[in-house]
Design a protein around this nucleic acid. Structure first.
Length: 502
RNA sequence: UCCUCGAUAGCUCAAUUGGUAGAGCGAGCGGCUGUUAACCGCUAGGUCGUAGGUUCGAAUCCUACUCGGGGAGCCA
């Protein structure tokens, strides 16, 4: 397609004839003018066909262009205020259908989640999904560029793994020539070994967790980047995480501003992601959960949300009235749709309100020694204006490899990064136990089979050094930075409990 | 594994609370010279998730199951 021009380049060809190749995003044929919106992978643009002597032959072709038909069209780009995006293609001199499309399932109206998920292979043609996956692509590239730029070596870790990792209960079992192996849930232990060869390393790939979680934060297959550094201390790992997250945010603000705006993500709250992030010890987080501020936050939530529901109820009543008195059919339709939206909002608010007492109870009765729950994380993140590092968790709730704090052996030198606005944990990291005897003791304390960890213990036998790192979940990061309610939109083909098609 | 909500036309939802199953979108046909989820008219489209039960009568009530949403636990 030597003569092909992309929609994004149209502004450089104003006034001269070009040929576009793409799909029909929208078609609105009228009596003598047809509006066809082309989608070509780079963007969308409106094409306008007016019926006259020269266009007679293909005007009928254009009128037959159904949603998602592939076609080529030749015409002249012009600046036009009435067109979405300000540019449209006019004076059409050719229009040919390449592949027809009949009864495309995803129509321009509302669809339910279950339906869209079954159409995922088509769904990501839709505008919003398209923007999200573009942002994901930038985030993935920003991750690689950051670590490569900081002198980290990429180390690819295996996906087939023996039963090592953070917990055996969440592993996917695979038959490996009659031997039982598992899909990797982390590359960390392998990357630690490579760290002793290259000093600064990272792995980046898919990981698998057989958690039977049906929530908006969980996938069974997700991507994780895990850097590891030798000869470092906890502060340096925190700084690395901070710089890393900020660089990813800066990158999408630079490269994907249009996409961010198109999906309605608030730019200001992304610009507010600046270092230093807050640092909060677990013990202080517990205090905070018990304190008056947490209680106040939830009480305010309760009054605010109750008021919102009151407002929605009034709105629904009004809409029902206006729906009854409306004369035009479309006015009734509009009212019905608004009622539906308001009802959905109300249901969600009611659910949130119902959960508040539980969350208050959980926070107030939180005991030193247990892990922070989802609601606790949300409270902590909302009491801060930036991402928060929560550090030094009790050793009992954390993995065996985390370094025991030499000043307080009840806790380990670890951290979670909690994203603002309730997006939850996006990073989990720690210093790794470098002392052979303590590590061996902890492997035994976790009832893990020591023989599987001989190679890992070797790292402590042959020139052990203080080292640490973290793992960042790509999809949770995409959800946070895009402001998405659900993680399933952050990855082209989400794998979740009970979902494997397409 | 547990709690909770749901399943009605291809899609999104109604059905006055147990009494003849309805609307919009989409599809088909016709009309319209500037549309932005276009608009106007007409047409077709249903075993109310499955299996039982209660009842003169069930989309509506009861039981079980299947599938899906949200959440807990666990986690990135």
């Amino acid at each position: 397609m030597k003569d092909r021009i992309y929609v994004t380049d149209l502004k450089n060809h104003v006034g001269s004839s070009v040929t576009l190749y793409g799909w029909v995003a929208k078609a609105r044929p009228t009596g003598k003018v047809a509006f066809i919106t082309i989608r070509d992978g780079s963007g969308t643009c409106q094409c306008v066909l007016e019926k006259n002597e020269t266009t007679e032959s293909f005007f009928d072709v254009a009128k037959k262009l159904s949603q998602e038909s592939s076609f080529t069209i030749t015409g002249t780009p012009c600046l036009e205020e009435r067109a979405p995006g300000g540019v449209e293609v006019r004076d059409i001199t050719a229009c040919n259908i390449i592949g027809e499309s009949a009864d495309y399932p995803i129509t321009p109206k509302a669809h339910g989640v279950d339906f869209l998920m079954k159409q995922r292979h088509l769904w990501f043609r839709s505008q919003r999904q398209w923007h999200i996956l573009r942002i994901r692509a930038t985030i993935v590239d920003a991750i690689r560029q950051f670590f490569n730029g900081e002198g980290f070596k990429l180390i690819d870790t295996p996906i087939f793994a023996p039963a090592i990792g953070e917990g055996a209960s969440t592993l996917f079992e695979v038959d490996y020539f009659d031997e039982q192996v598992f899909l990797a849930q982390t590359g960390q232990l392998y990357v630690e070994a490579a760290c002793m060869a290259h000093d600064k390393v990272y792995c980046f790939g898919p990981t698998f967790r057989a958690e039977k979680s049906k929530t908006r934060r969980h996938l069974t297959e997700f991507w994780m980047v895990e850097p590891e550094m030798a000869f470092c201390e906890m502060d340096e790992v925190l700084e690395l995480a901070e710089n890393f997250v900020c660089s990813v945010v800066q990158r999408i603000l630079k490269d994907n501003r249009d996409d961010i705006e198109a999906i309605g993500r608030d730019i200001a709250s992304l610009e507010a992601i600046q270092k230093p992030f807050h640092r909060l010890r677990y013990a202080d987080a517990v205090e905070m959960l018990h304190g008056p501020k947490a209680k106040e936050l939830l009480e305010n939530d309760l009054t605010e949300k109750t008021a919102e529901i009151e407002g929605l109820n009034n709105k629904i009543t009004e809409l029902e009235e206006s729906g009854k008195t409306a004369k035009k059919q479309w006015q009734k339709e509009k009212a019905a749709q608004d009622i539906q939206t308001a009802r959905e909002e109300r249901t969600e608010l009611e659910e949130q309100i119902a959960n508040i007492p539980t969350h208050m109870k959980l926070a107030a009765e939180f005991q030193f020694g247990s892990d922070l729950g989802g609601s606790d994380e949300t409270i902590i993140s909302r009491l801060h204006d930036r991402p928060v590092f929560v550090t030094h968790y009790p050793r009992e709730v954390k993995a065996f490899y985390m370094r025991v704090d030499r000043d307080d052996d009840r806790v380990v030198e670890n951290f979670d990064l909690i994203a603002p606005q309730g997006y939850g944990e996006v990073i989990g990291g720690s210093m790794r136990e470098e002392n052979h005897d303590i590590l061996l003791e902890r492997i035994k304390a976790h009832s893990l089979p020591v023989e599987n960890f001989e190679w890992y213990l070797d790292l402590r036998r042959y020139g052990s050094v203080p080292h640490g790192g973290f793992g960042l979940g790509v999809e949770r990061t995409v959800a946070w930075l895009c402001g998405l309610k659900h993680i399933r939109e952050t990855i082209p083909y989400p794998r979740m409990l009970g979902k494997i098609y397409p």
